[in-house]
Amino acid sequence: MFVILALLVGALYAAAFCLLLARTTTRLLFGLLLLGHAANLLIFSAAGLVRASPAIVPSGAERPPPGHADPIPQALILTAIVISFAVLAFAAVLVQRAHQASGTNDTEELRTTET
């Protein structure tokens, strides 16, 4: 399982960077999307994969039963997903507005601000 996940994370990173280096701004957007997925999956697998029960505390008990999964990585990923969703929504609007303002989605032509 670890090997599969490791390969998957690697493939996601490779695809993300490939898209980031492409010349159209739409692909840039998808690259950023995949980059977030890659990071989330990395957190999930780096924190350790175990077959275990969810960390739910039974009523009356002080702590979850032994053999529960670590809830922190799940919380981290949930937070990261929400944040990357919001930021990507902004990026999508920006890409669309940049296309309106400059009439192109070719990153090579979005260089009037460079010297």
């Binding site: 950023l32 980059l35 400059s102 990153t107 979005l110």
Partner: peptide
């Protein structure tokens, strides 16, 4: 807008690496 695309892309890249 052009500056925004560069800045946003690089910032999000940095955030993903941080994550």
């Amino acid at each position: 807008m052009e500056a925004g695309i560069k800045y946003v892309t690089l910032s999000l890249l940095s955030s993903a690496l941080f994550l």
